[in-house]
């Protein structure tokens, strides 16, 4: 992959020069957290922590229209998807997108996802972990694909910029003079030193080795009933998880006229209706059944299907769940029993 140098003071100039591609979205402070918002290059918080919602909100919006219909038939809604530049995507979130790519682009490719993915330029930015990050344990603290450009901190006055796609190359060429190919040996050293320093900063110690077997062995464990009793079935974990992609489909119809639309909206397997079928049979009537589905899907089943967990270590479930059920407490409980659910 091509790697170039960009002076930190030139970042603003660079973002201004690529503005013709689309609207710039970047992490902006919202209360005591951050959120991806449309913003001017001046207002970007370069030290932003995790955003409330991950990048999936750009590719699979909370709610969107798949098609409209009238007496003549169905018309897909694909033409009004905006071009956007998303700046400041952290490695874990890009890894989350790579997982969504598998789900949405293999086996019956989803045109809504693909169109949004194509029209969104992803400019990644390296970050430092806070007390909830564990991307080092899930192998997502660095990403090698899934972005157009990736800016890595070096602890000095420049970024190292990875060109990850043909679009990324186009964007770089819109301000080619700001980049330099002149990477010296000491630059490499500064970069590796920064990475070593970063590795020391992780605080969450979550051990995911052998998780599939542990899940398989614990499927009938009473732990699930206890966690189920604690779970509020609020669905917050699914909303903030970068790899939760379940959705519901609802039709709306206009009164009087024979027309309407079919919409998709986020759903969560922790909600009661998730596995309810017509006739009233609910395959997962208990909260413990649904919660077990959530975590076995992330930490066991996905490993079986793709060889790695679909948890990217972003720590969002750790900061979001009101009753402290999250990847960390769950893995720890399955390993050491009743650590967190006394």
């Amino acid at each position: 992959m091509r790697i170039l140098k960009l002076k930190k003071k030139d970042l603003k100039k660079f973002l201004e020069s690529i503005s013709s591609f689309g609207e710039l979205w970047a992490p902006v402070k919202k209360g005591n957290r951050w959120a991806f918002q449309p913003t001017a290059p001046d207002n970007i918080d370069l030290d932003a922590g995790r955003t409330i919602l991950p990048l999936k909100k750009f590719m699979v919006p909370q709610k969107f229209t798949m098609f409209k219909y009238n007496k003549e038939g169905y018309t897909p809604e694909l033409s009004n998807i905006p071009s956007r530049i998303v700046f400041g995507a952290h490695p874990c979130d890009i890894a989350g997108l790579n997982i969504l790519d598998k789900l949405f682009t293999e086996n019956f490719p989803d045109p809504y996802y693909i169109e949004r993915r194509k029209k969104t330029a992803i400019i990644g930015l390296s970050c430092l972990p806070d007390e909830f990050c564990f991307c080092n344990e899930t192998g997502t603290d660095t990403v090698e694909e899934g972005f157009d450009l990736f800016l890595s901190e070096t602890g000095t006055d420049f970024y190292l910029v990875w060109i990850g796609s043909s679009l990324g190359d186009d964007l770089m060429r819109m301000a080619e003079n700001l980049f330099s190919e002149d990477i010296a040996f000491e630059d490499i050293q500064k970069f590796t030193n920064w990475k070593k320093e970063r590795a020391k900063k992780f605080k969450v110690n979550i051990d995911l080795t052998g998780m599939p077997s542990i899940f398989e062995l614990s499927l009938n464990s009473k732990i699930w009933d206890k966690i189920g009793e604690r779970c509020l079935a609020c669905g917050s974990c699914s909303m903030v998880c970068p790899t939760c992609n379940c959705y519901d489909v609802k039709d709306t119809v206009e009164l009087r006229e024979c027309k309407g639309e079919r919409n998709r909206c986020w759903d969560s397997c922790t909600l009661h209706e998730y596995s309810l079928v017509a006739g009233g049979h609910n395959f997962r009537a208990n909260r413990s059944d649904r919660l077990r589905l959530w975590y076995t899907h992330k930490l066991e089943s996905f490993i079986g299907a793709y060889g790695k967990p679909s948890c990217v270590g972003c720590g969002r479930c750790l900061v979001t769940c009101p009753v402290d059920i999250n990847a960390y407490t769950l893995a720890k409980t399955l390993r050491e029993e009743e650590v967190f659910f006394k």
Binding site: F104, Y247, Y274, S301, F302
Partner: peptide, 14 residues
Amino acid sequence: KCGVGKCGHCVVRE
């Protein structure tokens, strides 16, 4: 909800 392996509702394990 989809029939094409996207919506997640019919998932059992992997």
